[in-house]
């Protein structure tokens, strides 16, 4: 069976700074993989390479078997199949919540207004913010905005979802509602690649946990192994620091 995501020897440099130094790993269809690691370890850059928001310096990324680093690849079509949720929500501020979840359906998928509205409302209900459909994003709490962002991505019927520290910009009391939606998505069988600091979420939801540091994958395995009994001292140090903070 083709893998959802397959990354081979991925390198990424910003000028002289090499952020990713040879990454290899894969995500199976239906799998939830959490990427953890200290800030500056390159995990966000890795995620952004997967839908080509960052241009990889070298290496290959296969999405459902298709090499997206090939210059002939239609990146718009690849991105359409990959939903992405950002740390800072990035809702379109000049549109209502409903228009936020409809615009790409209309302009990219060419869905009719009524169809886009129906699918948009279904997804807003799915994340529990349907009653905010007519509001503008700035009137919503961070947690609500992030759930709208998820509904916006889900309305495109993506094959997989990327989460870039989706709860890091939220007030602590709002983290739970966003993680809750992510958890139910995982239970529905969505393929998910999640960059996160929420060790508890990784422990409870992930099929696999990847620990990154300094641009390389240090550890890759089931949460019961990586988060409980890691092979490397760096992983243990990181986990100790994170769990002390909690």
């Amino acid at each position: 069976m083709t893998k959802a995501i397959e990354i081979r020897d991925l390198h990424k440099s910003f000028g002289d700074l090499e952020v990713l130094r040879g990454i290899d790993f894969e995500v199976e269809v239906g799998e939830v993989v959490c990427v953890i690691g200290p800030s500056g370890s390159g995990k966000s850059t890795l995620l952004r390479c997967v839908n080509r928001l960052e241009e990889p310096t070298s290496g290959t990324i296969l999405i459902e078997g298709e090499d997206i680093t090939d210059p002939d690849t239609d990146t718009d079509d690849v991105r359409r199949r990959i939903g992405m949720v950002f740390q800072r929500f990035n809702l379109f501020n000049h549109m209502t919540v409903l228009d936020n979840v409809m615009i790409a359906q209309r302009k990219v998928l060419g869905r009719s207004k009524s169809e886009a509205e129906k699918i948009g409302m279904e997804n807003l209900e799915r994340v529990g913010v349907a009653e905010k459909a007519d509001q503008f994003p700035r009137r919503l709490s961070g947690g609500q905005q992030q759930r709208v962002a998820m509904a916006r991505a889900l309305s495109m019927d993506p094959d997989m979802m990327l989460f870039d520290e989706a709860t890091s910009a939220l007030d602590p009391e709002l983290v739970g509602e966003v993680l809750g939606v992510m958890r139910s998505l995982a239970e529905e069988g969505m393929t998910m690649l999640v960059v996160t600091h929420e060790i508890g979420f990784a422990k409870g939801v992930a099929d696999r946990v990847v620990f990154m540091d300094d641009g390389v994958v240090i550890e890759d395995g089931p949460p019961s192994k990586v988060l409980v009994d890691p092979d490397h001292a760096r992983t243990r140090n990181f986990l100790r620091m994170v769990l002390e903070g909690e």
Binding site: N51, D76, D77, R79, R81, R88, N90, L91, F92, A104
Partner: peptide, 19 residues
């Protein structure tokens, strides 16, 4: 982030610009 979000939904550069 607005451009990134639009592109991540599959919009082309010009569609993201216009809408």
């Amino acid at each position: 982030g607005q451009m990134e979000a639009a592109r991540s939904l599959g919009m082309s550069y010009s569609k993201a610009m216009i809408w």
